[in-house]
């Protein structure tokens, strides 16, 4: 009998410091993945946690991890060449077919950029697959910015807006809450435009409210949820909302489904 709880050891190929508290871990991995899926990663004896896959190729995957507690503190002590335990991938991830041929805006708050990074990258690299591509990203401050090189590369040919809640002396970019920048998007085609929104619960709440107010159609909005998860496989019950298991049917939901879910 297969034991889905047993994790395997994987080698850390590289560690990139994005911010003081967010590191991207590149891990040797072969297997089919979809951007927005997650892995249960662990250090035996310390703990296990769900982490989004933010990038992958044929022989590796990347995860950007924020140092917030027990397990993530210990992960930050690991070095290149060390092993990390993983099981997965879990969840549905972003289905590219929902965005192909469309006018799409990806909206991310803070670490919410991690789960959609790969999907944005795909459309930046395959511009013919979408009608129009825009990206709107909000960070708390300039020093909280993630994937700076990627964002620069995306900005070369696309409309990418980065805003910070609070600037500093050297910041020359945009400031203000992410919701205040919706007006700067190309809204000419709003009833057809697709929005993909990922971020902390409070940002999602206000962003969705604003998008609907502006005229986005509910069925054209996609979100990714974060919930407490222990198992990732529909058994532990922590991620359940009504009859929906976020780990199984999510974390990516169409807003028409998401709005009906009551925690």
């Amino acid at each position: 009998m297969n034991n889905p709880y047993l994790p395997d050891a994987y080698k850390i190929l590289d560690i990139k410091k994005e911010t003081q508290i967010d590191y991207t871990f590149k891990i040797a991995y072969e297997g089919a993945l979809v951007g927005g899926q997650f892995m249960e990663i662990s250090i035996p004896g310390v703990g296990e946690a769900p982490i989004s896959i933010c990038n992958y190729d044929d022989s590796s995957l990347e995860m950007t991890i924020r140092k917030v507690g027990n397990l993530t503190d210990q992960i930050f002590n690991l070095e290149k060449g060390d092993t990390l335990y993983m099981r997965g991938p879990y969840g549905n991830g972003f289905n590219l077919d929902h965005y192909r041929g469309k006018d799409v805006v990806f909206i991310a708050g803070g670490t919410g950029l991690a789960p959609i990074r790969k999907t944005i990258d795909h459309f930046v690299n395959n511009p013919d697959e979408v009608k129009n591509l825009e990206v709107l990203i909000g960070f708390k401050s300039p020093k909280d910015r993630l994937f700076i090189d990627d964002i620069d590369r995306w900005s070369e040919k696309n409309c990418v807006t980065v805003t910070v809640d609070q600037g500093d002396d050297s910041w020359t970019g945009k400031t203000g809450l992410i919701t205040t920048h919706i007006d700067k998007l190309d809204l000419t085609n709003i009833s057809e435009k697709i929005a993909v929104v990922v971020g902390p619960p409070i940002m999602m709440k206000f962003m969705l409210f604003e998008l609907i107010k502006k005229g986005f159609k509910e069925k054209n909005i996609w979100v990714s949820f974060e919930r407490k998860m222990s198992c990732g496989i529909g058994k532990c019950g922590h991620c359940k909302i009504d009859e929906t298991y976020v780990c199984l049917e999510g974390p990516v939901f169409n807003y028409t489904t998401a709005k009906a879910l009551i925690d």
Binding site: S42, P44, G45, V46, E48, S230, C231, K235, C236, G237
Partner: peptide, 18 residues
């Protein structure tokens, strides 16, 4: 419903249980 818990039996050696 359940929650996972990790237990370390030794700090220097990697011995423990989930």
């Amino acid at each position: 419903c359940y929650t996972m818990q990790d237990i370390k039996l030794s700090d220097d050696k990697k011995i423990g249980e989930r």
